[in-house]
């Protein structure tokens, strides 16, 4: 699957000095990238860590090093902050409910496409991947309109069968579920593409042998397809979880975190604290907790699900 292996057909280097020169040349080519990496990624990561231990506010912007040291105060405050707790809970619900459903829907779509249709496969693939490459903003806008209680498509359709639809995004009990459904709708295409690629890698011999043995469709799915797709499933789970933990655009566009904080997420709190109230130190502490959590989760998922490889 992964084709990033070295080409082994290269002839051996002739002279040692050549190797040394090659090393210098090779590093030379990657130097611009390394500089960019230091300035825009490594630097900010360490800076964020430092900010998180200070009371960095708007006044410190003119002289970033003047922010007073705060020790672990920001972290202690974040853990006790009811809004952060609410946001952590919402984000957890989003991940725990949304990730398995997105990945499962993607798997179903991939298996159906692979087995059901051969002639129109490309049409179906396009239908599912369009939402993935379309801007999340355009999609959130469409969904906000579809869920509009008065003129939205969803409630108009419900009205046809005599149901008075709820005020989806304005009701604390339906706002978060609505956003989760939208996220699944959008992301199942990504999982599907990953699974379609994985299905191509399953040796056809396995299916032929199982047919000879009289296995049913579900038996083949359970005992051949699923085990063969394990690494691909891991990959889909990891990247979907990482994406969902950072959920920001959806609530930002659709609900601004409301009603009654029912859709506020960790990334939304970081935005509010950092850019509405300019508590940049406090926001950095929350961001760092999210960062560490994502790193640990990715690590654990690789360990737990990847142990056979």
């Amino acid at each position: 699957m992964s084709a990033t292996t070295e080409t082994s057909t290269r002839p051996p280097r002739r002279r040692l000095s050549n190797t040394a020169r090659n090393t210098i040349a090779g590093w030379g080519f990657s130097l611009p990238y390394l500089l960019v990496f230091l300035v825009f990624m490594a630097g900010p990561i360490f800076a964020a860590l430092w900010f998180s231990f200070t009371d960095f506010e708007l006044v410190n912007l003119v002289a970033p090093f003047s922010a007073p040291w705060a020790g672990f105060d920001n972290y202690v405050q974040a853990v006790q902050d009811p809004e952060v707790r609410k946001a952590a809970w919402n984000t957890a619900v989003f991940v725990v409910v949304g990730v398995p459903l997105s990945v499962f829907a993607g798997l179903m779509a991939a298996v159906l496409i692979e087995n059901g249709i051969s002639r129109l496969q490309s049409v179906f693939r396009v239908g599912y991947y369009l939402p993935v490459i379309t801007s999340i903003i355009a999609i959130a806008v469409i969904w906000r309109f579809m869920l509009n209680p008065d003129i939205g498509l969803v409630n108009r359709t419900l009205a046809l069968v005599g149901i008075d639809g709820p005020s989806w995004l304005n009701d604390p009990s339906t706002a978060l579920p609505s956003i989760i459904v939208m996220a699944i709708w959008r992301n199942l295409g990504q999982s599907m593409i990953i699974f379609l690629a994985g299905l191509k890698g399953v040796p056809g011999v396995l299916y032929e042998a199982s047919r000879v043995d009289g296995a049913t469709f579900w038996q083949r799915f359970r005992w051949i397809t699923l085990p063969q797709l394990r690494p691909v499933t891991l990959f889909a789970l990891v990247i979907t979880s990482i994406g969902y933990l950072q959920v920001f655009e959806e609530p930002f566009v659709m609900t601004q975190g409301g009603p009654l904080d029912s859709t506020v997420t960790i990334a939304m709190v970081i935005y509010e604290q950092g850019f509405n109230f300019f508590h940049l130190g406090y926001a950095s502490a929350i961001a760092y907790m999210l960062f560490l959590f994502i790193a640990v989760l990715a690590f654990v998922q690789f360990k737990v699900l990847g142990q056979d490889d």
Binding site: F40, M41, G43, P44, I45, A47, A48, F51, F56, L61, P64, Q246, F248, A267, I270, Y271, G274, F275, L280, A283, S284, A287, Y288, L290, F291
Partner: peptide, 9 residues
């Protein structure tokens, strides 16, 4: 969201 605050500063 982790790097955006230092980048903003």
């Amino acid at each position: 969201v982790v790097v955006v605050i230092p980048l903003f500063v």
